[in-house]
């Protein structure tokens, strides 16, 4: 099985420093970049599938030139190689541009499955995976809680999370699956994985390499515009409760009861 996982470097949500710069674009210098959380779940699912069925995992990312540093961690988890589409013209891309670029890059790769996280922690649009599938004419299986490929029969079954439980979907390969955290916790990279990742290939592609016109994608033709961003309202003072579970529980109950919240 040849699996491509779409990954995006995002500002580390744990740093709590996401903000826009003066051009109302994401300020990438404000917080260290990490692999988008949901993409790590997709990668974990891909690694488990190749462990069970054989094959290789390729990472595909559209990101600034600094991305390889972030992609190394995903390579350390066990992906074989990375493809990074990076081009100055892509700054300020909207989701439509991103979708077109990733679709163009996927046309240059061979795969049975494409996996993607359901959304990213910075943009949270959650539409790129569906758009890529649409542009490439791939079956789109969303919100996967379980992925069961049958490479010999050339099909994949997916359990899709629905409001009432699960839907069972089946599609011919190749297909694109968007992945949820129900698929299972991403692994920690092993030390050998970290060492090996340092010499794995990350192929960098420009728009010209993909045959895309720089005037057709990127910030200049963005279909959406960010008008502004505000941090959420500050929370009140935090009170930390410490002590034994019994003591702590009593204190929390007293606190809530005092304010007539319970």
């Amino acid at each position: 099985m040849r699996i491509v996982v779409l990954v995006k470097p995002v500002p580390d949500p744990a740093a709590g420093a996401e903000r826009l710069d003066s051009n109302l674009r994401l300020d990438r210098a404000a917080a260290p970049a990490v692999v988008n959380g949901n993409d790590e779940y997709a990668l974990e699912a891909a690694l488990k599938l190749t462990e069970a069925h054989g094959g290789e995992v390729t990472l595909l990312s559209m990101a600034p030139a600094s991305a390889p540093e972030t992609l190394r961690k995903a390579l350390a988890m066990g992906a074989q190689r990375g493809v990074l589409v990076s081009d100055p013209a892509l700054a300020g891309s909207c989701t439509l541009s991103t979708t077109r670029v990733l679709a163009a890059a996927l046309r240059t790769l061979e795969f049975d499955l494409v996996l993607a996280g359901v959304d990213t922690s910075d943009g949270q649009a959650g539409v790129v995976a569906a758009g890529v599938a649409a542009l490439l004419g791939l079956p789109y299986l969303s919100y996967a809680a379980r992925i069961e490929p049958d490479p010999a029969a050339g099909r994949v079954r997916v359990r899709r999370i629905s409001p009432t439980g699960y839907d069972l979907l089946e599609a011919p390969l190749p297909a694109l699956v968007s992945c949820t955290q129900v698929l299972g916790e991403p692994r920690y990279p092993s030390l050998k994985g970290i060492m090996a990742a340092r010499s794995k290939e990350i192929a960098v592609r420009s728009l010209a390499d993909l045959g895309l016109d720089p005037a057709a994608v990127g910030g200049s033709v963005a279909t959406t515009r960010v008008l502004g961003a505000r941090p959420p309202a500050a929370r009140g003072a935090t009170r930390v409760v410490r002590g034994s579970p019994q003591e702590s529980a009593r204190e929390v109950v007293a606190f809530l009861a005092e304010r007539r919240l319970i």
Binding site: A76, Y188, P189, L191, I194, M195, R198
Partner: peptide
């Protein structure tokens, strides 16, 4: 070295979380 820093970071994360 870059390698030492990476390995230390990996062990630190594991130690803190697990």
């Amino acid at each position: 070295t870059e390698e030492q820093a990476l390995l230390r970071e990996a062990v630190r994360t594991l130690a803190e979380e697990r």
